[in-house]
Design a binder for these strands. Sequence first.
DNA 1: TTGAAAGCGCTAACAC
DNA 2: GTGTTAGCGCTTTCAA
Lengths: 330, 330
Amino acid sequence: MATISDVATRAGVSTATVSRALNGKATVDPELAARVLAAAEELGYRPNGPARNLRKQETAVLALIISDVENPFFTAIARGVEDVAHEAGYSLVLCNSDDTPEKEREYVDVALQERVAGVLLSPTGNEDTATLLARHSTPVVAVDRPLPERASDAVLVDNRLAAKHATLHLAGQGYGRIGCLTGPSGVPTADDRLTGYRDGLRAAKVAASSSLVRRSRFKAEGAQQAAHALLTQDDPPDALLVGNSTMAVGVLEALAALHLKPGRDVGLVAFDDAPWTTLLDPPLSVVAQPAYDIGALAARLLLERITGERTDTSTTTLSAHLVVRGSSSC
Amino acid sequence: MATISDVATRAGVSTATVSRALNGKATVDPELAARVLAAAEELGYRPNGPARNLRKQETAVLALIISDVENPFFTAIARGVEDVAHEAGYSLVLCNSDDTPEKEREYVDVALQERVAGVLLSPTGNEDTATLLARHSTPVVAVDRPLPERASDAVLVDNRLAAKHATLHLAGQGYGRIGCLTGPSGVPTADDRLTGYRDGLRAAKVAASSSLVRRSRFKAEGAQQAAHALLTQDDPPDALLVGNSTMAVGVLEALAALHLKPGRDVGLVAFDDAPWTTLLDPPLSVVAQPAYDIGALAARLLLERITGERTDTSTTTLSAHLVVRGSSSC
DNA sequence: TTGAAAGCGCTAACAC
DNA sequence: GTGTTAGCGCTTTCAA
């Protein structure tokens, strides 16, 4: 593959001039610049990224570490990040941590090695990855979940408030035994939603009971089992606040298997809007999170920090909004 | 950030020894190796990726260029690719081409610049990106769609046959005016599905009519409009083969707006299985594609080519299978 | 405005 | 088994 000196030879100039011409530096004779451009074109020259990165001690790459690209919520975030990154001339390395501290740690290591310009991290709650990044002074923005014990930029959603609103809504619809199916303990979003749910019960003066709360991974399968257990126990809930749209699939399957109809038999509100929620009968009430915006904003913050435009740390909390549909009214 | 010579100094050895020790070369005195490891650990040393990449003239990075990560089919592919890549110690750069030749071209340029080890490409049908890659002898594997006019590795799905089967199934269920809603002209998967649909009509001896065929982007919105137009015209179809699950959302919305029920009023089969398809009433019949496997296999092929284990080009065509549910029987 | 030359951090000959 | 050294391809002083 052609190098900068091949181009220089062909254009009859030095490599310095080629570099300057190709990078659009002002101080280059137009005629020489044209010759350089032509030579580069003829040779199909592409600057060697690693060489440039080494020399400049910086790369135009961001890393996005999320739990799972197959989760539509994270996909939307990824899309937001990618759009902004691409716009700014940055590439995006995608990493699935599967919510395991080991994989997260491994990916942070890769990011550090490759000297990525910055990292967007939806942390598992594992402390050392954050300190690791800090030690190497790589800019980080926490996405969807805060970084434990460390002041860093973060773009979050007010899950607690959203869960409270959703719970109040269910109570207002006349459901009296409202349950909650949330994600694993220790995952901030899961915990916040549970706390918000309890806030809601309290505000609505509805009795809380630990038998109405279940946790599972943020996946359909676990949620299905948990929902089944919840609905077949003594004194089952008559409504359910569900942790995300993937879990909602499991819950809806469990309901169908028990011949229970959403809304009529069991009131339902799930976190995350998804295109298919309106197709159900009845359509699913949801807490819609601005996932794309989270990603786009986080990427913008990260870029600002990378370029040094901003040095103070900021936590932005976006709000989610309740979309009431048929599944939450008897 | 600590460099290899910092580690060398601290361990009291040369940089060569550090390099050897850290890369697990056999010929290093165990005691020295231990000292090196300790020094590296103490300094929080991370080898400089760009420097190593420059020196070795290779990177452990793959690029995945797909039309849209928000499409669950591509997401599943991405996940398959990432799992295999990660297993082999490779990172993955994610690129959304939005099915535009310009963005695709742009991303191929980036991949070339960064000297990625290989590219997984779901091409728009634009010829020059393929030749570009070939000119620079970067290994490529085409994913989901073949590379135009060029012998390269490819992992495809037999869309034509699958579409034929689906159409035959609809005909067998007694639908007599079967329509087809597929993707943009020129996108091979869209065209193949249309061809297969026509194969099916012919085999079933059902009359074909161009008024029963519509195209739109592989998105819900376009599909909704197209479906609406199709269903409100004179002599509307009584069944529809739909191009993918995203389009299916649009079609189902259009049906609901017209108070038409899938199955009873309009038979429906859509490409791509999705978790929510079983939640509908009636559940949606689909053509399930092995998306994760496509990604995983493509990544494996690419890695084999990168390492030189394989030099002959191969085209693997996986088959999709029809999953009959309620939406395709009156 | 242009060129010569140093050097980013690493690995791989090569010499010892 | 270990050290010395060249050089990957680029950008950026520094001189001219």
